[in-house]
Design a protein around this nucleic acid. Structure first.
Lengths: 243, 243
DNA sequence: CGGATGCTTGAAGCTGCTCAAGTGAAGTGG
DNA sequence: CCACTTCACTTGAGCAGCTTCAAGCATCCG
């Protein structure tokens, strides 16, 4: 076995490990692509270097050119409505995908702003569309990935209560950040209160008060962006509207 | 030209006219499919006869087998959360598509109940997935169609106010029912108040009061399910949160 | 150090909810 | 055909949750 064979195996291994933490792995790796197909897919994906907090990945009205997978960091997506009010669409942490918002009108309908210094994979839409036309399993995985991203939106329709929404949000961030590699029930929020409150559809004041209430009742501990879920069980009951 | 040539032309014409009012036409007709491809697509689509009000098209947990296009009638989709509360996902009128909710987990995540006696086109998912793998433009159109269906969900995140949400809802129903063939600004709601209120995230009592308020201020006229938009301009301002 | 930003806290007011009763239309059965 | 039930909707009164406006802290950063 020559050195090149080893190299190739190694590189494949690195790729798989790198993508192992990434939602997009459902797109490329575990669906049983042939090695040649995997290689073709890999050549399409650009790895974009660290992007500074405060910069924009894309803005409302930008042409739809690619979908993005977050390798590290966090990105918020939001739009400004006719009345000038900010509307948070969501947050995207390590291992998650964004950009599908532009599939229909072919233009992005929100701004994607980097919250924490982030590294991304960029998958040009044309390329992936062309390749999925050839590989049916890839086509289906694109659909599924898109479906999963959109399904997130139903989550907050459930919470009528402010405190219920907060509980849902905290538990959601916990599982997602844990999946991204942090300690369970103990995490740093990547966004400021204002972003959270507009995401939850409440005022920052109410958010502050309700977080204080959760802390006083011993369900969580909060210090600025640091959150520790003291009693995830009870928090989960609140999230489900029990009691 | 023999009789069969005439027949074929006629049938194609009928098909095109029938699909001309249908959202799915973006899927099959106007994207420039070859006649042979169009024929293949047509053989996949089952036209399902009139379904009685109160019956179910699919239920939560059902396997994902097909997507549906409404030819006439109206269907509501809703789910029941852990606490037993009903959560309306949306309404689907003539010319619209439903069923994409099941793309990701491969099972439907809501119930689809017929509100008015409805006729549907049934497009088996396996078939369309197989065909879109061959025809790239079809693949893209499936994505776009899906994106458009999901984009509807952002609409109500905007309305913070109850009356704003109602205004958005009324204007939305107006345009959609108008597209389906009714007189503009004058329509019959296909659903009961309870469905509307849970769709808007308010109580039926509040809905009743706010509809009364809109009528008193001369913006609309309501009588049970019949709605007439007296002043669509002002209604639109309210929908946008102006004033 | 001083300003800016992000967060918290307080008081008053309004929106929408809950509970409860009442109306009106449509269908049911004797 | 008419009382009776049912269902959909409306109306009222009181209350809770959330918002608004305003001020006060704390932390970060030049």
């Amino acid at each position: 076995m020559g050195p090149y064979a080893d190299m190739s195996t190694l590189e494949l291994g690195v790729m798989r490990r790198a993508c192992g933490f990434c939602s997009l792995n459902e797109l490329c790796w575990p669906i049983g692509l042939e090695p040649t197909e995997l290689e073709r897919l890999q050549t399409m994906v650009d790895k974009t270097g660290p992007l500074a907090a405060g910069s924009y990945l894309f803005r409302t009205g930008d042409a739809f050119t690619a979908i993005y997978a977050v390798r590290s960091g966090c990105i918020k997506s939001y739009s400004i409505d006719a009345g000038g009010h900010k509307l948070m669409h969501g947050f995207h942490v390590s291992g998650e995908v964004l950009g599908f918002d532009a599939v229909y009108p072919d233009r992005h309908r929100c701004n994607a702003m980097i919250l924490e210094c982030s590294s991304l994979c960029v998958i040009p839409y044309r390329d992936i569309a062309r390749l999925s036309a050839e590989i049916q399993s890839l086509h289906e995985n694109v659909l599924r990935l898109m479906g999963r991203e959109f399904s997130r939106q139903h989550m907050f329709a459930e919470g009528s209560n402010g405190i219920q929404r907060i509980a849902i949000f905290l538990l959601d961030m916990d599982t997602r950040l844990h999946r991204a590699g942090t300690v369970e029930h103990d995490f740093m929020l990547p966004m400021i209160r204002d972003d959270i409150s507009s995401y939850l559809g409440i005022t920052p004041e109410t958010l502050s008060r309700l977080l204080g209430k959760l802390q006083k009742t011993g369900l969580i501990e909060v210090d600025r962006r640091h959150v520790f879920l003291t009693d995830p069980m009870r928090l989960n009951q609140i999230a489900q509207g029990i009691n």
